[in-house]
Design a protein around this nucleic acid. Structure first.
Lengths: 170, 170
DNA sequence: TATTGTTATACTCTATAACTATA
DNA sequence: TATAGTTATAGAGTATAACAATA
């Protein structure tokens, strides 16, 4: 039941955006004017997210972990016994779509489903020793990668960027 | 040939993320510990992008414009005569996937496809008067919406956030 | 031979309805 | 009656291969 995940081309790398030159509007050659889109927070946040997560996805491909798998395993890792319902609320995943993710992680023996102590309807998700070891390694690699990606920014700027992003969506 | 687009539920709003409380790991109730994920730039950038673009999508639904339609029309608006190939490179869209987007915009008479003056293979995309009027209004609404969304930040912080994001992905 | 635009198609992601078991 | 988890399925988004017309 484990899902085979063929290596996938990762788009949204650092190449596609070309620098705009004001005043140029020739059709066939030369860079385009994207000045307006570049004023938009949504546009810039999406491009940054696609780039960073694309890099992370490449890094996690060695574990056959997609970004969503990593997020789920990370929450399970730090919240042993978490229920599917809580995971869905926390990561904004719809319950039907979480099912096969959990099945795949369970098949690889990174988590186990145990009956919930106080609620017969619910199932607690617990990381296995294998899953804990995996996530210790994977989280260390992701943290190291994020340092590389955020390298153009000073440590103060890195903190500030995350702080500003959180003020937007929280 | 125009695509009917049923109003779609927009997820990723400001509710799903719950504040973590350190030390709490009870399974069925209480907020989860998501401290680790919240240290990640990719995680925060994605949540912010989903939130901002979700708001924009709601605003553009009145014109039956999805985010990708808005981006394409905006580039056409500011680059009359742009080719499909240029659009794909600029917005990171694959050529086969741009075809039906352009067909839909053409069917609504927001752009026209004219033969390219210097290249018989290429087709230039030109905004119609209707398309120009649409985008003047739509871009004004998006800019106003972005001001609302970025309201928790000071004007200096807003500029800085965009500047920091660009340093990440450029 | 390389590029533009296109068709067909497959795969992934996201969404809704409906069912069961339990509270 | 409401909630947790699941199944089935539909729709949207993203990917590759291959073709005709033109450079």
């Amino acid at each position: 039941m484990s899902t085979p995940k063929p290596a996938q081309r990762l788009r949204g790398a650092k190449s596609p955006v070309q620098r705009p030159k004001k005043g140029l509007q020739t059709a066939s050659a030369g860079p385009l004017n994207t000045d307006y889109l570049e004023t938009l927070l949504g546009y810039n946040a999406r491009r940054a997210a696609l780039y960073v997560i694309g890099q992370s996805a490449q890094e996690m491909a060695q574990y056959d972990l997609r970004p969503v798998d990593f997020s789920v395993m990370s929450v399970v890792h730090h919240n042993p016994g978490v229920t599917s319902r809580q995971l869905c609320a926390s990561l904004d995943i719809l319950p039907p779509n979480l099912v096969k993710i959990v099945q795949s992680l369970e098949a690889r023996e990174w988590l186990v489903r145990l009956p919930h102590p106080h609620d017969g309807r619910a199932v607690g998700l617990h990381p296995t020793d294998k899953g804990i070891a995996l996530m210790q390694e994977a989280e260390a690699r992701i943290s190291a990668l994020e340092k590389m990606v955020a390298n153009p920014l000073s440590p103060e700027q890195q903190e500030q960027l995350i702080s500003l992003l959180r003020k937007i969506y929280l």
